[in-house]
């Protein structure tokens, strides 16, 4: 510290706690609402302390669903979200690590052409080519399937570039040593590159898991049956335009459940999360 000023430090603490309070307040309110019953919320006099219905509401949310608009249990939606998020994260890491290995460790005709073909995909998020992509997925018969939910979102270059940057920092001596020992490229990949990439994979996994879990527009378009809905779009369908019919306590419990997995991942894997966030953006 440059100088020690107790008052300035106090102000710093105060500003940070104020910031945290503003950030936490909406979530606190959501939790409180999920523990009260529908009438208390609907008449607009909800207290700011927890109510008695915690177990009842969460049981109904997870295993039964709302009684009106969306009858799919939220537990089912969470499983869908989980499968989607894991397929995107694992799939993208798997195909990207081998393609960056090819681009970095081999010399072959059209190498740079392949690299640019992958690189350009960085520029256009799925939102701008949404209907043509939808048409292709429909033609392939992948509507309402896990493959349809996840594979089109794997088509981007972030992970490939991320691994490429990392591979370029691996010392050449390791390749040479491995060659002298008589190991081929696949052996080198499996015994040296993969173990060295572990932290990078963890970092990427955190980012991609959150990306996959939070997808909205894409699952909204390609899922029609209630059984395939993800939690993030399920919640939107629970809010009916006629406010009187919205079962707010269930909507709020669903919101809590939708936040729980990605927030847990970030808090527990904070170190890898920060690394992944900072390095994928480079």
């Amino acid at each position: 510290m440059v100088e020690n000023r107790p008052l300035a430090n106090f102000i710093a603490h105060a500003i940070l706690w104020l910031g945290i309070a503003i950030v936490v307040f909406p979530v606190y309110l959501t939790f409180i609402a999920s523990t009260h019953d529908a009438t208390v919320i609907a008449n607009g006099e909800m207290p700011l302390t927890p109510g008695p219905n915690f177990f009842k509401t969460y049981y109904q949310t997870l295993f039964v669903g709302t009684s009106g608009t969306v009858r799919t249990p939220v537990g089912m939606m969470m499983i869908n979200s989980l499968i989607m998020a894991l397929s995107i994260a694992v799939g993208k890491i798997a195909i990207s690590i081998i393609s960056s290995f090819a681009v970095v460790y081999f010399r072959f005709p059209l190498r740079m052409a392949f690299f640019w073909l992958i690189f350009i995909t960085l520029m256009l998020p799925v939102e701008v080519r949404i209907y043509p992509t939808y048409a292709i997925v429909a033609d392939l018969g992948l509507l309402d399937t896990y493959a349809g939910l996840s594979v089109p979102l794997i088509a981007s270059a972030t992970a490939t570039l991320f691994f490429r940057q990392f591979f370029l920092t691996i010392p050449d001596e390791l390749v040479e040593a491995s060659k002298i020992d008589g190991a081929g490229p696949l052996r080198f990949f499996w015994d040296t590159v993969v173990p060295l990439s572990r932290t990078n994979m963890a970092a990427l996994f955190v980012i991609l898991f959150i990306y996959g879990w939070n997808q909205y527009l894409w699952p909204l378009l390609i899922t029609t049956s209630g059984d395939m809905q993800t939690i993030v779009i399920g919640i939107k369908k629970m809010i009916t335009t006629a406010d009187a019919l919205t079962e707010w306590q269930i909507v709020m419990a669903t919101a809590m459940l939708a936040m729980l997995p990605p927030v847990t991942v970030i808090v527990l894997m904070q170190r890898w999360f920060v690394k992944g966030l900072v390095e994928t953006e480079k």
Partner: peptide, 10 residues
């Protein structure tokens, strides 16, 4: 940092 993990729709 955790609001980063919250889906925009949520």
């Amino acid at each position: 940092i955790w609001p980063y993990a919250v889906a925009p729709a949520i």
